[in-house]
Design a protein around this nucleic acid. Structure first.
Lengths: 198, 198
DNA sequence: TACGATTGTGAATCTCGATTCACAGCGCGT
DNA sequence: ACGCGCTGTGAATCGAGATTCACAATCGTA
């Protein structure tokens, strides 16, 4: 059983992810990654054709995990839950996770990266907005939510939650209200923003 | 009348701004800036101690112009206008301008930049959020708007409008609804998000 | 006109991180 | 033992862009 996909590759990926969580992309130079993994720079290039490729892979796996968490949270609700509740749940899950690992959340949502990685981010955000959009449409069709520009609302919710949670304006930054209070406030914001009845 | 602050400085600033509007910070290398201004690279350094310093100055002047436009829009309203209308007006002004010069808006709000310039951006966003926060508070005090976490709502509105207008998810990107429709949808979103009565 | 100060010039230099590559160690089949 | 392929190594090389600096042009003033 020669493990062609050796532990080496995994170690490089883990090292990269750890460095990104600690200091963002800036701190994750090929040298730092190799060092953290206890390997030489050349070894990195033995397993990835470029730094970009490595980053894309890290980014994808992290995104996939996040998206999964959100979808599962939505599926845990009983069938026929009101759309507003689904939205709240999805976004609250997002909030919980972002608050638990703010650095990573920032890297995922907002930090400057190479164009190739950025494309992955766009895809991720797109799926995220799509998830919200679907729910909104369902709510509108069911008469629970008022008519509205679904794309715009979805984009604004993604951007708004992102900014409120990981942006520099985030009330979380200063020793303000705790995560629980922020999540609660965010739920209120979301509920109102989509026009759900009080 | 020896114009110590020669036209040269201004030409460099203008060249930098033009390049940023055309191709973002990436396209605005010192070489490109100097070339566009019809000057040599060394001349740039005769007037600015670093590229960063030049960028900060460009950024500041553009931000100041934008903020002024928003404040003036608010002041043009008759005294005693409802808070929700003030918010709508301020943010619609922002929207109008962003849609008119999307590249610049992106550079102002979201494009990756050096840390020093980024600090300016933070300050700008902060003033922007503060402007919104003030209005929210006034509306709450007047009983027009419900109690809420003002900081969070303000941050989410800034982020939400930014994403909806200049982000990759923006419905404006594709040949979707025109600027007027987007602005209208955004007004609805804002009105709801702050809990203004229909 | 002579002289110093200011401003303009742009090729040379510096920096910094990604990428390469000639070489070394190891495991395996013969 | 030998040949061969796969990994690992890390100093050397590249590339892109910012920054410097020795020299030239210009201007105000004596």
């Amino acid at each position: 059983m020669s493990t062609t996909t050796n532990g080496t590759r995994a170690r490089l990926l883990a090292a990269a992810q750890a460095l990104i969580e600690e200091g963002g992309y800036g701190g994750a130079s090929v040298i730092a990654i190799a060092e953290r993994a206890g390997l030489a720079v050349g070894t990195l290039y033995r397993h990835f054709s470029s730094k970009e490729e490595l980053f894309v892979e890290v980014f994808r796996s992290v995104c996939a995990r996040e998206e999964k968490a959100m979808r599962e949270a939505a599926e845990r609700l009983e069938d026929g839950s009101p759309a507003a509740l689904t939205l709240e749940t999805v976004l609250a899950t997002f909030a919980q996770r972002a608050l638990g690992n703010p650095r990573l959340a920032w890297a995922l949502l907002a930090e400057p990266v190479d164009p190739r990685v950025d494309a992955e981010r766009l895809a991720y955000r797109g799926r995220y907005a799509a998830l919200i959009g679907e729910t909104l449409r369902a709510g509108i069709a069911a008469g629970e939510l008022p008519e509205q520009n679904v794309e715009l609302t979805a984009a604004a919710l993604v951007g708004g939650c992102g900014e409120a949670l990981v942006g520099p304006l985030s009330p979380v930054a200063g020793g303000g209200p705790g995560p629980a209070a922020v999540t609660a406030a965010l739920r209120t914001f979301i509920r109102r923003a989509v026009g759900a009845p009080a």
